[in-house]
Amino acid sequence: MFFQDIGQAVLLFCRALRQWPAVWRERQKVWEQLHEIGNASLFMACLLAFFIGGVLALQTGPVMSDRGVSNFIGGMVGLAMCKELGPVMMAVLISGRIGSAMAAEIGSMQVYQEIDALRTMNIDPVRYLVLPRLVAIVVGLPLLVLFAVVVGWMGGALVCMSNPEINLTYNGYMNSLSNMVRVGDVANGLIKSIAFAVVIGVVSCHQGLNTIGGPRGVGRSVTKAVVNSIVMILMLDYVLTRLMIRL
């Protein structure tokens, strides 16, 4: 069932790609979706990232300080945030907040025959519903990740400065970070986040379009959208890490 869903989601992605020339025409809907993503998630993303950065510093800082390598703490937090935790945690957050909303909205439209109505008017639901959501999440998630990475770095810095067991200055932390983190590392995370955005958008829209039954069916679609997205994000994360580790 899971692999059947993946196959159908890939076909949906191909259909959405074929509608690519219509993006400019659908710009208003893309903008509305982008607003939805930013408005709903920016604060939560920053909050989450701040504490992830802080916890990373808190867990590793004292151990590294004890061994005399505290000048690597900033770099370690920086790399972990931009290459791994930023993209993955933001993707999980967005699949829960935005992916579930996409599946619920499209699923309700399916249940209440709104999508049938679009078809009778010769309006392709993939162009009308899927394309704007997909474009918006592909643009929106990397931007959120960028914010989250910077805020996560700041969270790590604050913990390092304020924790006496670590006792690292802000300049020391940032020097370590800037020595170890390269632009390519940030780009690495952004590439991952684009791939995760495609997964969330396609899987959520696919589950919405395949909703059957009443409100219970919508609930099932939302659950499947979130669970399938997270499973695929974690699997894809490993594959992308393996591919990009050599770059």
């Binding site: 209440y112 025959q113 709104e114 049938d116 109505a117 679009l118 009778t120 008017m121 010769n122």
Partner: peptide, 28 residues
């Protein structure tokens, strides 16, 4: 050109009445 009036109406709930009625003309 074909159209169907659904039993439930099947109006798009996120659009106003005017946007629903003009949807076909606007989208095409």
């Amino acid at each position: 050109r074909m159209a169907m009036v659904f039993q439930s109406g099947a109006l798009l709930n996120s659009l106003t009445v005017a946007e629903n009625v003009g949807l076909y003309l606007r989208e095409h």
